[in-house]
Design a protein around this nucleic acid. Structure first.
Lengths: 337, 337
DNA sequence: ACGCTTGCTTTAATCGTTTAAAGTGATAAT
DNA sequence: ATTATCACTTTAAACGATTAAAGCAAGCGT
C-alpha cells in the first residue's frame, strides 16, 4: 500500500500541492483558499487517509518537535516515574519524547546522546552517568539545548533540575533524631556523584547541628559491585558495635531493599531493634511487613520542570535555569515513635 | 553554533558534496576517490565535528531505521524488561527504538501508533490494549510492518510473539496438584484479553485432566477498577468456605502483590495456611518473607523474537510469523512441599 | 590527429514538505 | 481602453542527504 502524500491529494482534487499544504495546515483563510477547494482537499485527505510525513516536515522546518530523554536505568522506579512525567508534559507542549536508557554505562550514554542528536532532537533531558562530564562539556559547546535531571556536576555550569539532596537528607536525619535516635547509621554508595555526596553532607550536618558526635563507622560506603556483601558487613558492624546503632538511613531505595532483605533474613526487627528510613520508595516495600518511612521525590514536578526548561531553551534560548526541588518525608512504621 | 553539513565539509576541502558523501559512506574505493581527497575529507569531517543529519538521510532513503515500540504501561516490570530486550536486539540489527507507553488507554494507544507512523518508523512492535482490534485491522490495511507482542487477538490473523499462556497456567496448576493441593483458587482479571483467558483455560484444563472437580467460587474474577476490594472478598470467600482452598494461583504479578498484601495484613501464613503461586515476578516479592513461586516469562527471548520478526517483515516482507514461547516455573518457598 | 579508455569529479534529480513570490483571470476604477 | 485591485492559484526554491549519469583531463593506441 503506497504512502499517500500531498502530491496524491493534489492530483486527486486537481489543484497544486501548495494549496493542499495550506489547507491542511489551517492556513485556508489566511491564504484565502476558496471554500470549495478547501472542502474538497479536506475530504480527499480524509478519504485517502493522508498522514503527513514528519520526516519531510522536520527537514524543511529544521525542527522535529522532539525531545530526547536519557535515563540512567529503565529498571529504576525513578526512571519510569520521570519518563511518565516527561512524556505527559512534553505532549502538552506538543513535543514527542525520544527515549533511551544508558544503564549507567558511560559508552551507552554517549552513544545515545549522539544518536538523539543525529536524529535532530530539538533538545535533551539527561540523567547523566558517572564521569560523563567531558560529554556534557562537549554538548555545551555544540549548542544543543539540554537540561540535566536528577544529577548535576557542580564544576559545570549547566541548566539542571535536581532535588535539594542536602536538605532532604538533613531533614530526614533531623527527624530520626527528634524521634529519639542516638546513633544513626547512613548507608550510601561509594560514588563521585555530587547528588549522593550531598546526601552524606546533609546527614553529617544534621548530626552536627544536633550536637551528636559522628562516629566513623556510622557512615557505610557501599560499592555497587558488591552491594549485598558490603551491606551485610555494614549492618553487622553497626549492630555488633559496643554502642550499636538504633537507626539506619539508606541513601537510595536499592540500598534499602538490600538492607531490608538482610534484616528479614536475620530476623532483626524493624523498628524494634533498628529503625529504617529510605531515600526513595521501591515497589518492594509494599510487601515488607511494615510500611517503610521514606523520602519521596516529586517526580511529576521534576519532569515538568525539565520539560519547561528545555522547551524554554528551544523557544527563547532562555539560559541558566537551575531548579531545586523539595522532597517529602512519607512516614511509615519503620521508625521508632 | 551552526550545524555542520556535507556542504560545509565540501567547501572546506574544496570538492563537491557528492565526493564527501561517498567518502563518509565508505564508498571511497568503490567510487575511486583519490586517496588524497578521501584523506582530506575525513580529516575535515573530524575537525568540523560533522554529524550526519538522519532526518535528511531518512527522507532520501525512505527508511528511518527506526522501530516503534508501544508497551502497555511503563510501570510494569514486564514492560521495562521487554523494552530493554527490544532495545538491545534492535541495536544489533542497527535500528533505533522509538518508544511509547499507552497506559492501557485505547486513545493513547491510537495516538502513539499514529505518531510513530507519522515519524516514518519502518516497523512497529505493539503490546495492544483491550479493544484495539479496529486499530490493528487498520494497521494491517495500511501495510505497515508490525508484530503484536504478549497479547494477540485470535480473530485477527496478525504476526505475533506471545507466551504459551495455556500451557504455562496448565503446568503451574499441575505442579500445585502434584504438591498435594486439593482445592486451588485462581485469581484473574475480568477481561476480554485472550492471553488472560488462556490462563483461565489452562487452569481449568489442568484441574479436569487431574480429575479435580472445579468449584465455581475457585475462579475469582477481579475488576481492575476495584482490585483490592475484589481480592479481599475473593480471599475471604475461598478461605471461609466449608472446604477452604489450600492454594491460590494469581494470573498476574499485580494481582499477586495485592493478594499477598492482604495475607500479610491478616496474618495468613504462606504457605502454611495457603500456598501462593504467581504469574510473573514483581520486585515487591523481594521483601516478602518467603520467596514466591512464580512463572517467569522469557523477556529477552520475546524481545528478540519480536525484533527479528519485524525486521524480517521490513527487509524481506516475510509474512505470517506466530511465535509462541514457554515460561519457566521458578520454585520459591510459597507453596507447600 | 582522432577516438577510447582510465581515473577521478561534478552535476543535478530526488525524497515530501513549506512558503515567499509570481501568475492569472475577473471585475472595478479612471 | 487601460490600469488597478481583488481573489485565488501555481511556481519554484529550499531543507540535507544519496546516487545515477554526465563531464573532464590525461594517456594510449592506431
Amino acid at each position: 500500500m503506497k504512502k499517500v502524500g500531498l502530491k496524491d491529494i493534489a492530483e486527486h482534487v486537481g489543484v497544486s500541492i501548495a494549496l493542499v499544504s495550506y489547507v491542511l495546515n489551517g492556513q485556508a483563510e489566511l491564504k484565502q483558499v476558496s471554500k470549495e477547494n478547501a472542502e474538497k482537499i479536506k475530504r480527499a485527505a480524509e478519504e485517502l487517509n493522508y498522514r503527513p510525513n514528519q520526516i519531510a516536515k522536520s527537514l524543511k522546518m529544521l525542527k522535529t518537535n522532539t525531545i530526547g530523554l536519557v535515563v540512567a536505568d529503565i529498571n529504576y522506579r525513578f526512571s519510569t516515574g520521570i519518563t511518565r512525567a516527561v512524556e505527559a508534559e512534553a505532549k502538552k507542549a506538543n513535543y514527542t519524547v525520544l527515549f533511551g536508557s544508558s544503564n549507567e554505562s558511560e559508552d551507552t550514554f554517549e552513544e545515545l546522546v549522539n544518536a538523539l542528536i543525529n536524529r535532530q532532537v530539538d533538545g535533551l533531558i539527561l540523567v547523566p552517568v558517572e564521569n560523563s562530564q567531558p560529554q556534557i562539556k562537549m554538548l555545551q559547546k555544540s549548542g544543543v539545548p539540554f537540561v540535566l535531571l536528577d544529577r548535576n556536576f557542580p564544576e559545570i555550569q549547566a541548566n539542571h533540575v535536581t532535588l535539594n539532596n542536602h536538605k532532604a537528607a538533613y531533614d530526614a536525619t533531623t527527624y530520626l533524631i527528634k524521634q529519639g535516635h542516638k546513633r544513626i547509621a547512613f548507608f550510601n554508595y561509594q560514588t563521585t556523584f555530587y547528588h549522593l555526596q550531598q546526601r552524606n553532607q546533609g546527614y553529617l550536618d544534621a548530626l552536627k547541628d544536633n550536637n551528636i558526635k559522628f562516629q566513623e563507622h556510622w557512615l557505610q560506603e557501599v560499592k555497587s559491585s558488591d552491594r549485598a556483601g558490603d551491606i551485610k558487613r555494614g549492618i553487622g558492624t553497626i549492630l555488633t558495635h559496643a554502642k550499636p546503632c538504633d537507626a539506619a538511613f539508606f541513601a537510595t531505595d536499592t540500598l534499602a531493599i538490600t538492607g531490608l532483605k538482610y534484616l528479614n533474613k536475620h530476623n532483626i526487627k524493624v523498628p524494634g531493634q533498628l529503625s529504617v528510613l529510605s531515600f526513595d520508595e521501591s515497589e518492594a516495600f509494599e510487601l515488607f511487613y511494615c510500611p517503610v518511612t521514606h523520602l519521596q521525590q516529586p517526580l511529576a514536578e521534576m519532569g515538568r520542570a525539565a520539560v519547561d526548561t528545555v522547551v524554554g531553551l528551544i523557544d527563547h534560548n532562555k539560559i541558566n535555569r537551575q531548579v531545586s526541588l523539595e522532597s517529602k518525608l512519607v512516614k511509615g512504621k519503620s521508625c521508632r515513635e
